[in-house]
Design a protein around this nucleic acid. Sequence first.
DNA 1: AATGGGCCATCAGTCAGACGGATAGACTGG
DNA 2: CCAGTCTATCCGTCTGACTGATGGCCCATT
Lengths: 299, 299
Amino acid sequence: MRPQLDPDLLSTFLAVVQGGSISAASRAVHLSQPAVTARIARLEASVGAALLVRSVRGVTPTPAGLRLAERARALERLLAEALDEVGDDDNAVGALSLAASTTIAEHVLPSLLARFRQRHPQASIELHVGNTHDIVEAVRAGAQPLGLVEGTARAAGVRLVPWLDDELVAVVGVDAPFSVKRDSDLAQVPILWREAGSGTRAVVAAALRRAGVRTRPLPHDPVLGASTAIANAAAAGLGVAFLSRWALAPLLASGRVRTLSGLSFSIRRKFQWALPAGSLTGAAARFHRLAIQQPPAPM
Amino acid sequence: MRPQLDPDLLSTFLAVVQGGSISAASRAVHLSQPAVTARIARLEASVGAALLVRSVRGVTPTPAGLRLAERARALERLLAEALDEVGDDDNAVGALSLAASTTIAEHVLPSLLARFRQRHPQASIELHVGNTHDIVEAVRAGAQPLGLVEGTARAAGVRLVPWLDDELVAVVGVDAPFSVKRDSDLAQVPILWREAGSGTRAVVAAALRRAGVRTRPLPHDPVLGASTAIANAAAAGLGVAFLSRWALAPLLASGRVRTLSGLSFSIRRKFQWALPAGSLTGAAARFHRLAIQQPPAPM
DNA sequence: AATGGGCCATCAGTCAGACGGATAGACTGG
DNA sequence: CCAGTCTATCCGTCTGACTGATGGCCCATT
C-alpha cells in the first residue's frame, strides 16, 4: 500500500488525460493497457475520488481529475527540478560509461552526450559500441552500467525498457541500376545486411520473412558492420539498405539516396534501455534521467 | 526501477535527517533498520549523489543531502495539499465505516472523527467496536474496509501497519485496600481483566508471565468488557487495572485513581491499522490519510 | 441487422524487489 | 578491554505490479 501520492501514477494519469484514452496512454508510456488501467485505479483509490469517466470511446477526466491533473503538472516540474538540483554543483560526476548499438551511437546519442557534457563538463565520457546481444550480455555481467539496444535480447537480470520508436526505411542510391516497385522485387536485388548478431539484421530478416519475400542467399549479399557503411554502400548503388529513420535525414538531404515507396510493409522497432537489476547509480543514472526527460527527436 | 523521485523514500530520508541516525529513523517510521538503510541507498541511487555521511555515531547529511531535504519538505507539503484538495469539494464522501478496538474507539478516535466530520460534514460515520481478533477477521473477509487494533493477530490478506505507540499503565483506586510495591505483590491482588480475545488481555498476560508474576487463577478475577468499565472498577477499588496511556489522563485528572510506580516492567504495545489487501478506497482512504497526517497525541 | 474494430475491465501467471531477522564489522565511552 | 550502539550485508519470504489473453460493450460501416 502506498498512502502517499505516487509520482509514477500521476505522470501516467497525465498521459491518460492528454491522450484521451487509456489505450493511447499505454502506448505512449510503454506499458500494457491493463497496467495503465490498474495504475489509474490505484491513483483513484489513493485520492479517494473518481478521476476519469470511462466510456467506450476513451475516457474524460472528472472535475476532480482536472484539478488533480493541474496539480500533477506542477508537482512533476518540482520533482524534476529537485532531481537536477541535487548534486548539480557537486561536479564529481566522474566517468560516464555506456554501451550502445551502432545506429544509436551514431545517430541518437551525439546530441544527448553533448547535453550531458554541457551539464557536467568535468565528466569523462566513454561510449562502447556493440551489437544488441553483446551489450545486453555486458550489462548482465556488470561490465557496463547501462546499455542502449535495438533488438530484443532477453537475459535474466537485465530489464529492457522501451525508449524511442524507430522505423527501418528501405533506401537505394538515387541512380541505382535496379528498381523496386513491389515487395517481390526485393528478391531480385542485393540487400545490404548488418553483421550477424545485429539487432537490426534480425528485425529486417523477420520482416522480410513475414512479408513473404524470399531473400537471396545471404552469402551473396554484402555484410557491413555499421549503418554509416551501409548507407554509403546504398548511395553507391550496391543494393537496398534498411536504415533507421534516425540515420536518414542527412542522407536524404545529401541527395545521394532515395526511399523506396512501393513496399507494402513497414518495419517498426524500438530503441530500448538495457538496465541492470537494481537501480542505476552515479553518472549512468544522471544520463538515463537526462535522456528520458528530454528525448531527442529524429531529423 | 523507479526513475522518478519516490515520496516514500523522501519522507524516510527526512526522518533520517531529523533523527540524526538511521536506527532512530527506523523506529520513528516503523520500519526495520535494514529497510531504512536500503531506502536511503535507493534514494541516493536515484538522485545519483551521496546524501549522508555515515559514521558510527549516526549519520549527517551531505550538502547535497541538505539541499534535497529542503526540497523534500516543500514537495511533501505540496503532495499533501494536492491530496486534500482533490475531491474536497466533491462532498459525496458518503459513508465512513471502520472497526476499532474498545480502547482506540473510546480514547483515540473521538478527536479524529471530529476532524473528519468537520471536513466532510455530509458523511455518515459508523464505528464498529470489537476485539482485535474479530476486527482483523472482519477486514480479511471484506466486511470492514479498515480496522484499528491493538494486538498482533496475523491473517492472510490483512496487513498490520503500526500507527501509534501505547503503554499500558497499572492503576488502582486512590483508596484501594491493598498496596503494590513490587512485581510480586501483583499476585496478591485482583487484576481487572479484559475479555478473552482482547488484544490488551493477551499483552498484559504475556508481560506478567515474562515478569515472573504468577497471576491468580483467571476465573476469580473480574472480567470486564471495556476499558472504561475497567477504569471505573479500578477507581472503585476492585483491583489493579492495566490501562492505556490514552485512557489515563481524564482518570488521573479526576483524582480517583493513581498509577503504580513500584513495578519493574513496562508494557508497551502499538496501535495498528488492519488494512485489507490492495488499496483503501473512498472514505476509508480519506480517514486513514487524515489519521496518518495528523496523528492524535495522548493526554 | 449484422459485423468488425476499438476500448476498457478482469483473470491468471510470473517475477522483481522490498521487507524483516540475524549477523558481522566498526567505532566509542566507560 | 569490554559493552553498547550503529551501519552494512546476507538470505528467505512474500507482496504486488506487470504482461498476455480474454470477454464485454458500444459505435461505425455495410
